[in-house]
Design a protein around this nucleic acid. Structure first.
Lengths: 129, 129
DNA sequence: CGCCACTCCATGCACAGTCATTGAACCTCG
DNA sequence: CGAGGTTCAATGACTGTGCATGGAGTGGCG
């Protein structure tokens, strides 16, 4: 029965994760949608805001792929969207011309600052309770 | 500083959930894909296998929407796919002709039994470690 | 009885995500 | 040097999901 309960416990834990994920994701989307952002968009913006506060460490995109829960192609498209909206800027890396730097624009930085509390509030609502 | 650490703790918790979700989801997909199923498909199959072991309680679909992490429309299409693959059968509810009963076919039941251990193993790999 | 509001499931449409592939740049080794 | 293999990001083709809507069915009330 030990194996049985272990399996059941995993199953239960998985359900918890699933539901917490779904509720929180949805709540974040709700909170951010009025500002034209989705949860993934915010994740990347937040990444850029916190992981590179002063200056660029690496050739960005490659750097981001590992840290974000998205495939390389999805990230590429997402960044393209953000650029189109004027929130980030892409520039080729001079040292390795395959690479691309991504940086927040001032507009991107402002928007991030604006929505950060909303995201935090959403987290508090779904995870904090 | 109390507020600050509370925010950071939430953030951290959220990251944990996000990464656990992504890793596990991916692992389940990997494990089940050879059998023609995705994680959502399994979730519904499992629901049907466990929540209705003997007989139908309600008009199903309506019943499932609340328990599964999918929108009503996504569920509708998913069930259509499963039906096309011969894993479930739909039938109108005689009492309330708007409703639709969904039930596992024997083929569906077999497949569920076949892949259940694979899903459990995936959970153990990503959550149990 | 007839109308209206409501519930249930399916569908049109738009979009974000994945996988596979491409094309450019880089690096290593002969 | 230059050929072959590798890495980086972007793109094409496809799938799955959500939102909004539609059409059928139900129930209540005048």
């Amino acid at each position: 029965m030990a194996a049985k309960t272990a399996g059941a416990r995993l199953e239960e834990r998985w359900r918890d994760i699933l539901s917490a994920h779904a509720r929180t994701m949805c709540e974040i989307d709700r909170a951010l949608h009025p500002h034209g952002l989705g949860a993934s968009d915010f994740e990347v913006l937040d990444m850029l805001a916190t992981a590179a506060p002063e200056e660029g460490e690496q050739c960005r995109v490659q750097n981001l792929v590992g840290r974000v829960h998205l495939s390389q192609s999805a990230l590429s498209r997402l960044i393209a969207r953000l650029e189109k909206d004027g929130l980030v800027a892409r520039s080729v890396c001079v040292e390795d011309r395959r690479g691309v730097w991504v940086a927040l624009t001032s507009r991107g930085r402002d928007l991030h600052a604006e929505v950060l509390p909303l995201q935090r509030a959403a987290l508090a609502r779904t995870l904090g309770a």
